[in-house]
Structure formats: C-alpha cells, structure tokens
Write a protein that binds this DNA or RNA. Structure first.
Lengths: 108, 108
DNA sequence: TTGACATACATCGTCACTCGATGTATAATT
DNA sequence: AATTATACATCGAGTGACGATGTATGTCAA
C-alpha cells in the first residue's frame, strides 16, 4: 500500500515540522515514527530524510544538539525554532488548501 | 493562495485522467478548467501540462485527435483509453491513502 | 490600423528533489 | 562469529516542474 513517491514531494517538510512541534526527535526516530504511523503508506529512507533535515536547519527552522542515548549511541536531536513554528502553521494551512483542491478535481 | 509546486508532483496525472474520463478535452482547456476549479490554488502552465500529456499518450493511457474549432484554431483533443480508465481508478485510490496518511501525521 | 491580449500548440535548460546504494560505527541478538 | 538493528551521513542517477521562449492566428479596443 505504498504511496507513489511523487506525491510525497512537498510533504516531508510540513510533516517533520509538525512532529518536532510536539517533541524533540532524532532522525532515525522520525523515519520509524512516520512509517509506522502511516502503516507504511509512507516509506521514508535515510537518503530522503537527512538532506531534508539539513535543509531545514540551514533555513533556521530547526536546531540540533548531540546527546548520548542510554544505549551508548550518539543521537542528533532536533527542535523547532520560532521561525519553524510559523512555517509549520503556514505549511499545514497550505496542505489544507491543496487537499481541498485535489478533492474538488477528483470527486466532483 | 497558490500551492507549493512540490505538492503538485504526482497529482497532474490523476487529475488529467479524471477530467478526461468525464469528457474529451484539449490541452489549453485543461489548464483553464483546473486553474479555475481550484480558484488558482493550482496554477498549471504549458510547460507542466504538455509534457505530461505526451507522457500519458506514450504510455497508452490517453489518445489524441486533431479537430478544427469554430474559431479556426486547431485543437488536439484527448480521450481516455481503457487502460487509462483503470489507471485513473488506481490513482484516485492512491490519493485517498496518501491524503489519509498526511492527515494522520498533521492532525493527530 | 495597430498594438495588446487571448487562444493553442510545443520545447528547452535549469533547478531541486527522491531514491537506492554505499559507507562508518556500535550494540544487541542469534 | 555473524547478522540484525540502530544511527549518522553522502553521492550519483534519474525524474519532473517551471519559467522562458517560440510559432501562429483571432479578437477587440484605442
């Protein structure tokens, strides 16, 4: 039930920002949570997520800090900035418009 | 209220197939109808639509024939093939899965 | 009548992104 | 000892949207 990858485009950023608005997370965790929450309709890979996280950080929407987990592995935790919160709200709004437009075209 | 172009990716094909399932249309008409129906949330351009139509025709999902309109302009009308109908149904279904996955992530 | 605008087709180069492959490293499991 | 899971990261190939550009004709107002 995997979704066409082309549809994914443009959704990674709003989804990441929304998740980080809830709590700080690290990359590998985001991949697992997204894939699980969508029952693998989304199948994110490292090659997709990490460049995206770096992009968001470069844009000042998220910040990172290293921590050592209980299992001894270093994790880079990301948190949302003020700018990121505003961007998140805008992108969620944008999704609503987009989804409504598509529904109009496909089911009207 | 224009939508991020990245979100558009993967939506052009299902939308075109759906429109052509309703009636035969020509390229310029599709652009106008889509932009109007979405209140310009979608802002399709020639550079987006025509290559997409050629792709769909090469894949055997749509067929074309020239007609001369009342205003004297030649128009290339597109119709949906049997294969295109099946693909259309599959892609609409895929959209539903995708939209639900995104809603789960953004509003849960 | 002439210039602007709409209609209608089309292509091309640039830019950006996804994905699979690959790499490094450690801990846990078998 | 080998495999799997965790966790970071990069790179190249392929894809596709978009703006710009081109061609051609019809309409309409200044």
């Amino acid at each position: 039930m995997a979704v066409n990858s082309d549809m994914m485009r443009g959704m990674a950023e709003p989804v990441i920002l929304k998740l980080l608005n809830h709590k700080k997370m690290y990359g590998y965790e985001i991949i697992k949570v997204v894939n699980e929450k969508t029952n693998n309709a989304f199948q994110w890979k490292e090659g997709t997520l990490y460049p995206c996280l770096h992009r968001l950080e470069a844009d000042g929407l998220i910040e990172s800090e290293w921590e050592i987990a209980d299992n001894g592995k270093p994790r880079k935790y990301y948190t949302l900035t003020k700018k990121g919160q505003a961007e998140m709200a805008a992108k969620v709004e944008e999704w609503s418009h987009f989804a409504q437009a598509v529904n109009t075209l496909l089911f009207a």
